[in-house]
Amino acid sequence: MLGIDWNFAGCGCGVPQGKDVEVGMRGLLVKDFRFALQNKKMMVMLVVIEAVFLVMQGAGSASFVMGYMMMGCGMLVLATITTDEYNKSMAFLMTLPVRRADYALEKYVFSFLCNLVGFFLAVVPYCVLRPDRVADTLYLAVVIMAVMLMLQMVMLPAQLKYGGERGRMVLLGVFAGGVLMFTWGRKVWERALAGSEGLQEFAARMAEGIKGLDAAVAGIGAVLLCIVCFVISLSVSRRIMEKKEF
């Protein structure tokens, strides 16, 4: 499916049986969830902050608080990579019955599960508070979750390649570069648009087309985009892990 090698062959570590992947994955997930449980205080803090905002601002603060909540949960996966590197633990982890490719895949699975937990922690209080706006809340939460997941698709390979601290620096650089590119591209586009009637007509048609898109079609497009990003990001992460030395 979509070119992904679900058997993880060619990683230089033998061809695993499905059972191997399952066992390795289960063990790594247990490790990361055990670590997450050590961060109970942080989770409780997040819930408290959400409650405070709810009391103070009602449902009006939904986008900020839900984003904050889901980010807090989603970022746990990055913390697990940092702690895996703590005391050079990665070398030992790679001696366990876990292949390098399993390690990369598990981080994506864990990331998705954390985002899912964040999703429910963020959504439930607002749905209880404003039962009349459940659909809006869910729509907002899905958009935030998609953004979080996309962000992590970029962050995970960087973290695996450069490690916790350096990875964050690299990401800052990438985002700063991205903003600069976007600003520059926008200026170039606006200049080109001003000088060409054909381009203006094309832009208008595009805008109309987007407006007229069915919500379901847009949703399916977003999911497909997420899947494509996941496949690319995972294969980059796997390659990084396979080349790594411990």
């Binding site: 570590c13 033998g14 992947v21 366990l96 019955p97 876990v98 292949r99 399993d102």
Partner: peptide
């Protein structure tokens, strides 16, 4: 090079 996760057990 041919080592699997099961072998690592």
């Amino acid at each position: 090079e041919d080592f699997t996760a099961a072998d690592k057990e």
